[in-house]
Design a binder for these strands. Sequence first.
DNA 1: GTTACAGTTGACGTTAACGTCAATAATGCG
DNA 2: CGCATTATTGACGTTAACGTCAACTGTAAC
Lengths: 147, 147
Amino acid sequence: MPSKPAPARERRYSISELASEFEISTRTIRFYEEKGLISPRRSGGNQRYYDKRDRARLKLILRGKRFGYSLEEIAEMIGMADVDLDEAGQIRRSLAYGETKLAEIRQRLDELRLLEQDILSVKARLVARLGHLERGGLAADRDRKGK
Amino acid sequence: MPSKPAPARERRYSISELASEFEISTRTIRFYEEKGLISPRRSGGNQRYYDKRDRARLKLILRGKRFGYSLEEIAEMIGMADVDLDEAGQIRRSLAYGETKLAEIRQRLDELRLLEQDILSVKARLVARLGHLERGGLAADRDRKGK
DNA sequence: GTTACAGTTGACGTTAACGTCAATAATGCG
DNA sequence: CGCATTATTGACGTTAACGTCAACTGTAAC
């Protein structure tokens, strides 16, 4: 059998490499590890090294954070994204959790669109007000009060 | 004279009313006030009461929070949403700020769609894995932990 | 009235998510 | 090899965003 397509020595990243790539501190990365969010391997001298998967995970963590998820919530998400798949029950639980998250995300999408509209309408009001000021805003400006 | 459609005494809300409506504590609401995010009126006995506008603002704050904005950022947004419009320069500055926020929001929309995709693909993998387990679960049979 | 409940202002406590610093060990390179 | 980087583990500090308690005061119902 023609075994696997060659090992191809997967790319490794040092902690500072990832830190600068994602513009976070090394402390932050270690902190995520403390919290069980990442689990890099160690080299002979006990130094961490990260592979593609670790890197992808870090990306996911940061993305989650940008949406206001706490590390704890992200941990759950990730537990789902990874699970050292041992038995079907675990997987099913993870799937259920994933559904919840999907629903959440979709709701967030809707809300984000609302937020966009909010800001657009504020903008419209401001533009109108500005036009008003620039034109006949002379006396009316001093006596501002009505609508 | 057919005067105006009657004043219609605008609806007022107490702090605890809003708190329970939005499922936050009264402390939180007062905290937002300390930070300058809301400015309710006071009744004779120095008690806060909130009107529709205050309520809408609170909603906006909470919405912003759900997207990971800090209170400080929200304060800026709101400054934009409100400004006691005094001069055109202020308005222009606010408009510029609004543009920035809009750009941010749109990027977030894109990212959120990405996150959705991420989770969908994880889900697909899990489903596949599950199907695999349920069928060829021969070796896995030995490892079965029961449920 | 009075009585219970809601609200007010401090002031201090707490938690998440890191920052900072120190002492020590591992790696890379000329 | 020596030496400059870069890492590692504690341990303590910090900030945002509230929670919690205490000691009042206002308000609403009876």
